[in-house]
């Protein structure tokens, strides 16, 4: 190698090193995942999540990019592995992730002006069963094993009756979403389903005929609504920025529009203790697993 070549080699290395530094510095401007699952969205969501994410991102200055995962466990993993990510999770996974990963609570949606919702036990209108326990050896459709309304809630309810949900039904049909559970019911894949009230309400708006074909046999809750959460490395300032945007969404037209499309009334700031009921259910269910 000649001296000329060595000079150019050193220059290249220097530039690379400085570029990395700059790149490292520029990382904070790379959008972070806004993680959502199929549990929370439905087939008519269209690009709502994208627009919502853009709204948040733009408004908060915290760049976000939609990242879809098909289950809460994946959402938990993404937020774990991307601690600066933000996501919209369910109460039960938040409780677990909050404990395990330091997941942070950003805001809680208001559904019918309340930060709570119910878990509905639905079945087809021509069925004669009255309770969830009556569907022994049947098929229970659920959205996600980590879903509060989709699985934890019916599990807890049966546990209270001394019934192990995993033994009571011949099949626990994992559908990946509440809408999927509704679909499974409508198509005779399942005999009974545990569905998020929020999703069911939104579904009925676009599928009013489903209201005749399915009926509610049990309403459980109210439970804390599915929260907006952030990874453990999202700083407080950013969390507050995002939270503030969410809280003030109904103060601007775009936010209102988004809220209307979400069928939500706004967001509210809550403390992690708000999810204590879910935590309690989880504890009880988990303690019974060892029995």
């Amino acid at each position: 190698m000649t001296n000329k070549h060595f000079f150019y080699y050193l220059l290249t290395i220097s530039l690379l090193i400085s570029g990395s530094s700059g790149l490292a510095h520029a990382t904070e401007t790379v959008p972070q995942p806004f993680v959502v699952t199929g549990v929370i969205i439905n087939s008519h969501s269209g690009n709502l999540i994208e627009r919502f994410t853009n709204y948040l991102s733009t408004k908060s200055g915290y760049p976000l990019q939609v990242a879809y995962v098909n289950k809460y466990s994946e959402l938990s993993r993404v937020l774990r592995e991307n601690p600066k990510a933000v996501g919209w999770t369910c109460g039960a996974p938040y409780v677990q992730d909050n404990e395990a990963d330091g997941q942070q609570l950003v805001a809680v949606p208001l559904f019918r002006n309340k930060p709570v919702y119910h878990s509905l036990i639905l079945t087809r209108s021509d069925r004669s069963e009255k309770t969830l326990a009556d569907f022994k050896d049947g098929v229970l459709a659920y959205s996600d094993p980590h879903s509060n309304s989709g699985f934890l809630s019916p599990q807890y309810a049966l546990l209270k009756q001394g019934i192990d949900i995993k033994k009571h039904f011949r099949l626990l049909l994992h559908t990946g979403s509440h809408e999927g559970s509704i679909t499974a019911l409508l198509n005779n894949l399942a005999d009974v389903a545990a569905v998020d009230e929020y999703i069911w309400t939104a579904y009925l708006k676009t599928h009013p005929e489903a209201g005749k074909r399915l009926h509610e046999i049990k309403r459980m809750g109210p439970y804390p609504f599915t929260p907006i959460v952030a990874g453990n490395e999202v700083n407080e300032k950013d969390i507050n920025k995002i939270s503030s945007i969410l809280l003030k969404m109904n103060e601007d037209s775009e936010g209102k529009k988004l809220l209307a499309e979400f069928h939500l009334d706004g967001f509210v700031k809550k403390q992690p203790a708000f999810y204590q009921p879910v935590k309690d259910m989880l504890r009880e269910v988990n303690s019974n697993k060892g029995n």
Partner: peptide, 11 residues
Amino acid sequence: NDQYAAWMTIT
């Protein structure tokens, strides 16, 4: 064991 997905695939 993803029956729902299988059914979705079929339909």
